[in-house]
């Protein structure tokens, strides 16, 4: 029922949809990766209330799978030459497109809030070692794990604990623990190398570098996957949608 002159257009739309469905599947997989939070930094975002990086990730899971389904559907619709199916395809694609735009923008906007060492530092000082609140417990476990595994201390280094008052400082005096003992260098069995050397701040017994690089790296990886990859798919999808719209107007 499509005009004969638009068979080239049909081939283009089919190719475009193949790309959409493949990259939709990839987006699906990648955003599942992001939302499972392999770097275990979710509480840092969650306690601040800026966890919408992950909200964007969840939306993108839905959108990725929808792109996959709609890509298949779009190929069928154009091949069958059914006006109704193409119309359905266009409407559904528009809905998914809007959602995916929202996902990209949300994710990236909230990344900007969190890629700020001061936010994370203030939160760490407020909650670290506070076992009386759920936020405190979450933040504490994140930091324990991170400092132990990544061999880092504080957000920007051990001085974070010296320069500011904190919940930790109220609980432990500075003479015996100027910084959490998780900042102390440990041997292969995670035993503190030398506690005396650690608490006087000897550079070979305290991790000097902060954990911010690790946190920002994690958040950036998530955002990259959710936002930039989604953005690339949206750019491509836009052309396919415009071509399909054009094709639709020529169908009779």
């Amino acid at each position: 029922m499509a005009e004969k002159g638009s068979s080239g257009m049909v081939a283009c739309i089919v190719f475009g949809n193949i790309v959409i469905l493949l990259s939709g599947l990839a987006l699906f997989a990648e955003t599942i990766w992001a939302t499972t939070d392999p770097y275990k930094v979710y509480p840092i975002l969650g306690v601040t209330g800026k966890d919408d990086v992950f909200a964007g990730g969840w939306i993108a899971i839905f959108c990725g799978f929808s792109f996959f389904i709609l890509g298949v559907f779009g190929i069928l619709a154009v091949q069958r030459g059914s006006r109704t199916m193409v119309l359905t395809y266009l409407v559904l694609m528009m809905i998914v497109y809007i959602f995916e735009c929202a996902s990209c923008i949300t994710s990236f906007t909230h990344r900007d809030y969190m890629i700020n060492s001061n936010v994370i530092k203030g939160q760490m000082l407020t909650y670290y070692s506070d076992s009386s609140t759920p936020q405190g417990r979450q933040i504490t476990s994140v930091w324990l794990r991170m400092m132990l595994e990544k061999n880092c201390c504080g957000v920007d280094g051990p001085l974070d604990w010296v320069d500011y008052y904190s919940y930790f400082r109220q609980s432990y005096n500075e003479t015996t623990a100027p910084w959490p003992l998780w900042c102390c260098q440990r041997d292969g069995n995670f035993q503190i190398l030398n506690q005396q050397g650690c608490i006087v701040g000897l550079s070979s017994y305290v991790y000097q570098q902060g954990c911010f690089a690790h946190i920002s790296n994690a958040i950036n990886s998530y955002t990259w996957g959710i936002s930039w990859f989604g953005f690339a798919i949206l750019m491509w999808t836009m052309f396919v949608m415009l071509a399909t719209m054009y094709h639709y107007t020529k169908m009779n």
């Binding site: 990236f108 990344r111 900007d112 809030y113 890629i115 700020n116 001061n118 936010v119 530092k121 203030g122 000082l125 407020t126 010296v162 320069d163 500011y164 008052y165 904190s166 400082r169």
Partner: peptide
């Protein structure tokens, strides 16, 4: 001079 953690400026500043 230990500063209160609430004095940390958390304004995100310029957008990326």
């Amino acid at each position: 001079n230990g500063k209160a953690s609430s004095t940390i400026d958390t304004w995100p500043g310029r957008r990326s």
